[in-house]
């Protein structure tokens, strides 16, 4: 018990940030799982974060309601983004969403009435660990159900080969639009969770750093299963902290090095259902091969 308390005292905030980052990673995963690389999650998070912070700060809205509203705001923003961006080819899509991240910051800086501008906003409420845990559990459950639904099957088909999927009656546009809505809601919720964790947000909170963390988490964890996003966010949040404890000299480059190593040696991430299937098939072949080889001797 004592060790547990010690751990919490030392690493409690790391666990909390890993959970917050999970929302962003899942938001990025939501679109990536239909073959769209998008950084727009950062914009959805900004919408959700500032919306929730203002609702709580100015109108005294209870925290759970503010989080729900943040999800709604993120979802609305994502509908606009999807309508505007989904016509683009994949690499242009990624670039356009990156441009959106830059625009988000400038807009946030120049709308002090809504965002506090350069001075930022103090958020007068804090999300409890339990609330955060419940919120993440609900979102994770949704992803779990989605992955086993018709949507999940169609999403995988669209990601692997949109043309073939379309000749089977799946509309890639509709599936990717849905993916954006999911990404927007989860991104908005994540933005609010971040605001209620940091208790101070500014336009810099929702910027390139966040984009990097979420994409890296998804890639590292594995973008072919939603659990990968959770694992990736945990590893990626814990990595700098542990590095600081063990070898402080390389703390700054640890993230970059880890990402490079993963991309070179595990390009499909830590959690990769396809690799399990391939290994199973290889084992089955080995067993079959062993059996036929054994026959002449017997």
């Amino acid at each position: 018990m004592q060790t547990l308390l010690d751990f919490w005292a030392g690493y409690g905030s790391t666990v909390v940030f890993a959970m917050v980052n999970s929302f962003f990673a899942l938001s990025a995963y939501a679109v990536l799982s239909t073959g769209v690389l998008s950084f727009a999650t950062v914009a959805f998070a900004a919408v959700g974060g500032f919306l929730a912070a203002q609702m709580v700060g100015k109108f005294g809205m209870p925290l759970p309601a503010a989080v729900a509203l943040a999800g709604l705001g993120g979802g609305l923003a994502s509908a606009l983004v999807a309508a505007a961006f989904l016509k683009l080819e994949s690499h242009w899509m990624a670039l356009a969403s990156l441009a959106l991240v830059l625009i988000t910051r400038v807009v946030a800086l120049n709308a002090p009435a809504l965002t506090g501008g350069v001075n930022g906003l103090v958020v007068p409420q804090r999300i409890s660990f339990l609330q955060l845990l419940v919120l993440l559990a609900v979102v994770a459950l949704v992803f779990h159900r989605l992955s086993r639904s018709w949507y999940g099957l169609a999403a995988r088909a669209v990601r692997e080969d949109p043309a073939v999927a379309s000749t089977m009656g799946v509309s890639p546009y509709r599936i990717q639009f849905t993916a954006f809505l999911i990404s927007g809601v989860v991104g908005g919720i994540g933005g609010a969770a971040l605001a209620f964790t940091l208790q101070f947000i500014s336009p810099e909170t929702y910027f390139i750093g966040l984009a990097f963390t979420m994409i890296a988490s998804t890639v590292l964890g594995g973008s072919f299963h939603w659990v990968g996003s959770l694992i990736g966010a945990a590893v990626f949040t814990a990595l700098p902290v542990t590095m600081q404890a063990i070898v402080p000299q390389i703390e700054d480059v640890a993230k970059g090095v880890a990402l490079l190593l993963i991309m070179i040696f595990l390009p499909r991430g830590l959690i990769d259902p396809r690799a399990w299937g391939l290994r199973r098939a290889a084992r089955a072949r080995q067993v079959a091969g062993g059996a036929t080889q054994a026959e002449p001797h017997g």
Binding site: L153, R156, D161, V164, M168, F224, G277
Partner: peptide, 28 residues
């Protein structure tokens, strides 16, 4: 042109998309 990462059954299930008989929402 089969989908990478899907089992044989999942491939055929995807082919049954038009005959699934439920909306995306209710399938969730």
């Amino acid at each position: 042109r089969l989908f990478s990462g899907m089992t044989a059954l999942e491939q055929v299930m995807t082919g049954c998309w038009l005959k699934r008989g439920v909306s995306l929402w209710s399938s969730f």
